[in-house]
Design a protein around this nucleic acid. Sequence first.
DNA 1: CTGCTTATTGAGAATCGTTGTTGAAAAGAA
DNA 2: TTCTTTTCAACAACGATTCTCAATAAGCAG
Lengths: 152, 152
Amino acid sequence: MIATYTSSSLKAELNEKGWRLTPQRETILNVFQNLPKGKHLSAEDLYNVLQEEGAGISLSTIYRTLKLMARMGILRELELAEGHKHYELNQPHPYHHHHLICVRCSKTIEFKNDQILKIGSKAAQKDGYYLLDCQLTIHAVCPTCQRSLMPT
Amino acid sequence: MIATYTSSSLKAELNEKGWRLTPQRETILNVFQNLPKGKHLSAEDLYNVLQEEGAGISLSTIYRTLKLMARMGILRELELAEGHKHYELNQPHPYHHHHLICVRCSKTIEFKNDQILKIGSKAAQKDGYYLLDCQLTIHAVCPTCQRSLMPT
DNA sequence: CTGCTTATTGAGAATCGTTGTTGAAAAGAA
DNA sequence: TTCTTTTCAACAACGATTCTCAATAAGCAG
Ligand SMILES: [Mn+2]
Ligand SMILES: [Mn+2]
Ligand SMILES: [Zn+2]
Ligand SMILES: [Zn+2]
């Protein structure tokens, strides 16, 4: 987990594995770096953001880039109970955080806890795994949905 | 989180919300209750198991039941990096556990940690959420895949 | 037990997020 | 530059999940 990527550190990390730095990849990383705290983007969200900014990157490239960056540990891939994945920068302590999700309305709250990352690192290390991301996901029912009479 | 459901405790919990106990729901819960430790089932896995057992339950019903039971907190819905969801019984301490997943080959290891559930409960409680499930998911690269020269 | 109301089922069609395929363009090496 | 390899955009294809709807059967009140 690197705190902030620059063009050249991104290039270095890509080249190390035989990949290339393209304008598209640089642009996409930039969007995530300038994202407000607590904001998560789906592939389609990102596509729309880029359209508005005039940087028309194809959906295919977006999907490929998101997956690539998630596998490199640059982005976190989140399942926020909406039928599609969301992504955000994978930042180290003290920005590292977790998600509390309402399974009914999908409202999501972020929270921090210093122990989690330690527990996760230790678990990965114990079996010789190289840690990419460590997320505590809490599925729950929010106060509003608890009050709602509607079942389901 | 209830340790073991019987026909009647399941019925009670369903009826409380205006739902009904059907033979299909009872059968499906039974499959999970008799599943070997560490085994997870996808919707299609479950469909096949039921076919072999002679209890032909339709895929539609399986999907509906899995979602229902996950929302009730009876089952856990897991994202094990294979493009589809997996399910297992949602059991309390000391059976409650977490998952360490290789993002390349999807190999999954289960591990336990007593603190996690406490941390999760506290986080949910703080915001008035009703806890259903709490899972620490670790994305990593397994030793074998680290050695493999193949990128991606 | 009987009948009524309404949740649930099964079969298949439909949806939609994601992945695969292709020829063209761009990056990196020499 | 020139050659080789990777990446791109566009669109087709895929597959997991959801939806639709007529038929069935829980649950409940009498
Ligand atoms: Mn977040
Ligand atoms: Mn498990
Ligand atoms: Zn809610
Ligand atoms: Zn692996």
